[in-house]
C-alpha cells in the first residue's frame, strides 16, 4: 500500500515538473511540425513520428533523410549518430535505479529518455522512482506531439514574439537543473563553468566549430566528465544516502 502511494506521489510530482517541459516542447515541436510540412509529411505522420521518437535533433535529421529519399541504412546510421548522447544519459540513469525495481521499467523508461526528462530525473535526490518519469511523460509527450501536429497542419500561428520567448524555455529549465547543484558544490560549479566555456569555444573557434553540435555534446561530455571523475572522484556516501522505499 505504501509502495503504491509512493508511486502515486512520484507520478504527480513528475506531472508537475513535466509542465515546463511540455511548455518548452510545444514551441520547439511547432517548428519541427513546420519543417515536416515543408518536407511533404502529413500532420498525422508528423504526430506519429513525434509520439514515438521524442527527439528534436533526431527528428529533424530523420525528416531530412526522408525528404532526400535516402536508404533505410542511412536512416539507421543517421539516427544512431545524432542520438548517441542517449547512451550516456541512459547509462547515467541506470545508476539511479533500484536494483530490485521490476524489469519492465527498464523497457518502459527508455521510451521517455529525452534531454529534458533525463535532466529532471537526474535532479531527483537518491534513487529514481520510474513513475516520476512517467508523470513527466504524461504531460510532455502530448505537448511535443500536439505541437508537431499543429505546426504541420497550420504553419506559423503563434505571434512571433511569443514563439521567440518560448524558444528559451527548455534552456531555462536546464539551468534550473544544473545551477542549484553548482551553488551547493564547488566541484560542480567548476564543472558547469568549464563545460560552458569549452562548449562556447568549440562553437566559436575556427576548425572546432566545424564539429557538429551532436558530436560536440558527446565529445565534451565524455572528456570533461572523465576528467572530473579522475580529478575529483566521488567517495561512497555522497550518492549513497538514502533513499527509502522504491
Amino acid at each position: 500500500m505504501e509502495k503504491a502511494n509512493n508511486n502515486r506521489t512520484w507520478y504527480i510530482k513528475g506531472i508537475k515538473d513535466g509542465i515546463p517541459i511540455a511548455l518548452g516542447y510545444f514551441a520547439v515541436s511547432f517548428a519541427l511540425g513546420i519543417t515536416a510540412r515543408e518536407a511533404g509529411i502529413t500532420p498525422l505522420q508528423a504526430g506519429c513520428m513525434s509520439a514515438v521518437m521524442l527527439a528534436s535533433a533526431g527528428q529533424f535529421a530523420a525528416i531530412n533523410v526522408i525528404a532526400a529519399a535516402d536508404t533505410l541504412i542511412q536512416m539507421a546510421v543517421t539516427t544512431l549518430v545524432i542520438n548517441l548522447r542517449y547512451i550516456l544519459m541512459s547509462s547515467s540513469m541506470s545508476q539511479k535505479l533500484d536494483k530490485k525495481m521490476p524489469f519492465i521499467h527498464r523497457l518502459l523508461l527508455p521510451c521517455f529518455v529525452t534531454d529534458e526528462i533525463f535532466g529532471i530525473a537526474s535532479n531527483v535526490e537518491g534513487r529514481l522512482n520510474p513513475f516520476y518519469n512517467y508523470g513527466a511523460a504524461t504531460v510532455a509527450v502530448p505537448g511535443w506531439t500536439l505541437g508537431t501536429i499543429l505546426g504541420a497542419a497550420v504553419g506559423a500561428i503563434l505571434p512571433e514574439r511569443i514563439e521567440t520567448a518560448l524558444s528559451v524555455a527548455l534552456y531555462g529549465m536546464f539551468l534550473a537543473i544544473i545551477i542549484p547543484g553548482a551553488r551547493k558544490n564547488k566541484v560542480l560549479a567548476v564543472l558547469v563553468s568549464v563545460s560552458m566555456l569549452l562548449s562556447f569555444l568549440f562553437s566559436e573557434l575556427p576548425v572546432l566549430s566545424a564539429i557538429s553540435s551532436g558530436t560536440r555534446i558527446i565529445l565534451l561530455t565524455v572528456v570533461i566528465a572523465a576528467a572530473a571523475a579522475f580529478l575529483r572522484p566521488i567517495e561512497e556516501e555522497t550518492e549513497e544516502e538514502a533513499v527509502h522505499g522504491d
Binding site: M89, S92, I177, S195, L198, S199, I234
Partner: peptide, 12 residues
C-alpha cells in the same frame, strides 16, 4: 556517470 548530466546539460 554522476557528472554526465551536469556536463551534458551545460554544454547543450
Amino acid at each position: 556517470l554522476y557528472y554526465v548530466p551536469f556536463v551534458t546539460l551545460a554544454v547543450m
